[in-house]
Design a protein around this nucleic acid. Structure first.
Lengths: 291, 291
DNA sequence: TTGTGAACGGAAATTTTGTTCCATAGAACG
DNA sequence: CGTTCTATGGAACAAAATTTCCGTTCACAA
């Protein structure tokens, strides 16, 4: 035996280690190394006996190979590849997947309706990746604090922005915030906005072309001395100018239709950021009472 | 023992068989069926004991399940999924990737409240990337055709699914489709669904725990002879079973909150797929008239 | 050529995994 | 209310896989 290193933690780490040590390996071990690099799938799901036969070596040689790379046995090495396979197909892979996405970006699909979905996946992925560039962590933190500090939160958004507003209203309420959704049912939008008081927060969502109702709501709320948090596509939009804080989202545009996934993501981050802070504060309060 | 059928030959065949027989299965067997449909990867890679623990049943129950579908044992069933995994993932250039291997910059997510946004971006990116795995192009094409063929489209979705439903209703209408949004304002949901006729389509969105109103709407529409298109998180959910077509979305889960970005993306792809087809047809019609 | 050390192959041993069996709980039916 | 039949959980069993061990081979140096 020649080594008691720590084993690689990911499939890629192992690949790197193999490449590095390849020349120093014995003939048989090189043979196995090649197989490991070329057929990671088989390595992941076949049994040692099958792998041994396919690669033309003995099972024991594979065990030796694994041990020489710091594993306890071949099974431990297999687990690495199994996990990789799992994450490739399911929702568990983190670091590796993110890197892979850049490769998928440049196949500009020109086709008809068939590859529509992947086109959308790509576009929205890019929009998501860009989100942190227009919304800084400190912006988000400020926004969360605004929500926290508010007596009540009024949410407004119509047309294309309506789903986002609806989500915000629904989930803020779930999170225990006093929330009024200015939904305009029965034409009561103006009256609902009229209830806004200083200490409240108006959370407005709107994109170009900015809906009149939303713009009006922002102006009215500002005039009444309430804070305004805007989610919009421009920092100089009519709902951004009077706002206390604006979170800017640049959505992707696919076949002339603008998307919403990035806004959705931002909305979630905002709500859960609030929920998180809120429960922490509740905890603290509870503990203080006990003491 | 009750069956000596021939076992399914592919994973898809098995899925179809499960869907067909699902209602006739016992509670435990349904539980396993769900797991088999929802987590095919784990079924492929993990051992029986692990699968049993994850799905909350006994190993023997899994063997029984496999046998009831005509397999000799659970291993034979696993082989199906393993083969599927192998062929699906085989065509990737591994040696190429190894050569391109660059030092991984491990940004180990250091939580706190600040990096919340990037955490969300990452999670939703993964969910997006996985979307094509649960929704095939042909599924989407079929769904688009359903929308096209419908006399009118009724859209229903409440609570968490509401934003998605609202988006679908809004943008389908924009695209020129006769659309009725079953929004339940004034408690009129049932009456609205009562207007559904054969030739119409009900587009239902619901996730666990499935809202009663939505389930009822699906059943009512199906009973009235209309087609049903479901967007859900499982193929055996209450709104998936009576549906003509189901699009399955697996959302990412961040800090115990399930996301919506992937559903949003799917909804957009659906609507725009329809808009595209529709405008093409309109064009054709126009040209015919001129000639 | 011969001695020495490392690598290898194959079989035995061990561990892990899958399957079967049976007692029991629960539902359906008379 | 009791009987019967089915489904279930758990433990015992069987099969298969992995790991260890050891005799042999090969390469290299003296």
């Amino acid at each position: 035996m020649s080594d008691a290193q720590t084993p690689p933690a990911t499939a890629d780490e192992l690949r790197a280690a193999i490449l590095e040590r390849y020349d120093g390996l014995s003939k048989r071990l090189q043979q196995i190394a090649r197989y490991v690099l070329d057929e990671p799938n088989e390595l992941a799901l076949e049994t040692l006996a099958v792998i041994a036969e396919r690669s033309g070596v003995q099972p024991s040689a594979i065990v030796r190979f694994a041990k020489s790379f710091g594993f306890d046995g071949a099974s431990q090495m297999q687990r690495l590849f199994r996990d990789g396979l799992l994450s490739g197909h399911a929702a568990l892979g983190y670091s590796e997947r993110v890197r892979n996405f850049s490769r998928a970006v440049d196949n500009s699909a020109a086709s008809g309706g068939a590859e529509l979905l992947s086109e959308f996946v790509e576009g929205n992925t890019i929009a998501l990746q860009n989100l942190p560039q227009t919304v800084s962590d400190s912006d988000l933190t400020t926004a969360v604090k605004l929500v926290e500090a508010a007596e009540a939160v009024f949410v407004v958004g119509v047309r294309r922005a309506f789903p986002i507003a609806a989500y915000l209203a629904y989930s803020l309420q779930q999170a225990g915030k006093r929330t009024i959704f200015v939904d305009g049912v029965a034409g009561l939008a103006r009256q609902q906005v009229g209830m806004v008081r200083p200490g409240d927060l108006l959370l407005a969502v709107s994109y170009q072309p900015y809906a009149e109702e939303t713009v009006h709501a922002v102006e009215a709320a500002a005039a009444r001395g309430a804070k305004v948090l805007s989610i919009s596509d421009s920092l100089v939009s009519p709902i951004a100018k009077p706002a206390t804080v604006t979170l800017q989202v640049r959505e992707s545009e696919i076949r002339a239709f603008r998307s919403l996934s990035a806004s959705m993501c931002l909305a979630q981050a905002l709500v859960i950021g609030f929920a998180f802070e809120n429960s922490r504060r509740e905890d603290a309060k509870g503990r203080r009472r006990k003491a």
